[in-house]
C-alpha cells in the first residue's frame, strides 16, 4: 500500500521493534505533526484465544473514564415507558415496527442499535441486515437490556462496545488526540485492565499477545503491556 509522505515521515520516527512504555508512547503521539482533524487514538490488541470456540469469544462494553470524545448515532427499539426512557437519555431514534421497516427499506444511518428484550421479536427479523455489519444488538455487549434508559445514557457518554474479530484481534478507540496525556493514559489503562480481567477461562497461555497504539492517520507503536 502506498503511504503518504507525512505518514512515512511519522513512521521513520518510530522504532518498529521497540516495545514502548505507555508514557513514552503517548509523548510520541502527542508530539506527532497533527492531521487536518482531531484524530482518534486507537488501541489494537492481538489476543491469545481460539476464535472458533464460542467459550473464548471476547466481547463486551466498557465506559471509558474520560469518554472517547465522539458521540455515536444510536437508535433504540423500545415501547411505552422504555421508549420514553430511551428518548430522555438521548437516543437519536426510538421506535418499534416503524423503525424496523425503515431499516428494511435501506436506512442505515446509525452506528449502534439497542433493544429491550421484548423487542427481540421485531429486531430478530433484521438479522440479515444488521448482523453482517456488526450492529445486531446482543445481551453480551449490553445492547439488549431491560434498563434501556441507562444503557443509552452510558453509550452516549462514551461507553464503547468491543469484540475480537475472526483473527483474534481487538480494536477500540480510547480517546482523541486532543485529550490531555493523563486522560488518554487513564482510558488506556482502564481498557487494558478491563480486557485482561475478561480473559475467558478456556483460553490457554498468554492472553495479551501484542498491544499497539495508533492515531487515525499515524503509525502504530508497540506497547510493553503484555
Amino acid at each position: 500500500m502506498k503511504r503518504s509522505k507525512q505518514y512515512q515521515q511519522l513512521r521513520a520516527a518510530v522504532d518498529r521493534d521497540k516495545a514502548y512504555d505507555l508514557d513514552e508512547a503517548l509523548d510520541i503521539i502527542k508530539n506527532m505533526k497533527p492531521a487536518a482533524f482531531d484524530e482518534t487514538v486507537e488501541i489494537h490488541m492481538k489476543l491469545g484465544i481460539d476464535v472458533r470456540k464460542p467459550d473464548q469469544n471476547v466481547r463486551g462494553t466498557i465506559s471509558m473514564p474520560n469518554g472517547i470524545g465522539k458521540s455515536v448515532k444510536l437508535i433504540a427499539f423500545a415501547q411505552g415507558e422504555n421508549a420514553q426512557a430511551a428518548r430522555d437519555a438521548g437516543a437519536d431514534e426510538v421506535g418499534d415496527e416503524d423503525l424496523a421497516k425503515r431499516i428494511q427499506d435501506g436506512w442505515m444511518d446509525f452506528d449502534m442499535v439497542l433493544a429491550t428484550p421484548d423487542m427481540m421479536r421485531i429486531v430478530s427479523r433484521l438479522g440479515r441486515v444488521l448482523g453482517p455489519q456488526g450492529k445486531m444488538p446482543s445481551p453480551k455487549s449490553g445492547t439488549v437490556t431491560d434498563d434501556i434508559g441507562t444503557a443509552v445514557g452510558e453509550f452516549k457518554a462514551g461507553k464503547i462496545e468491543y469484540r475480537a474479530d475472526g483473527s483474534g484481534n481487538l480494536h477500540a478507540p480510547v480517546g482523541k488526540k486532543s485529550f490531555d496525556k493523563q486522560a488518554l493514559k487513564e482510558n488506556i489503562e482502564a481498557f487494558v485492565g478491563h480486557i485482561t480481567a475478561t480473559k475467558p477461562p478456556a483460553a490457554k497461555g498468554r492472553f495479551l499477545l501484542k498491544t499497539v497504539l495508533a492515531t487515525t492517520m499515524g503509525p502504530g507503536l508497540k506497547l510493553a503491556m503484555q
Binding site: N57, P117, R121, G127, G131, M136, P137, S138, P139, V144
Partner: peptide, 20 residues
Amino acid sequence: NRLAHRLAELHDLFESRGGY
C-alpha cells in the same frame, strides 16, 4: 422475558459462528 433473552443469545451465537 426468558424467550426474548434466549433469542438475543441465539443471534449472538449465530453471528459469532459466521452465520451471516
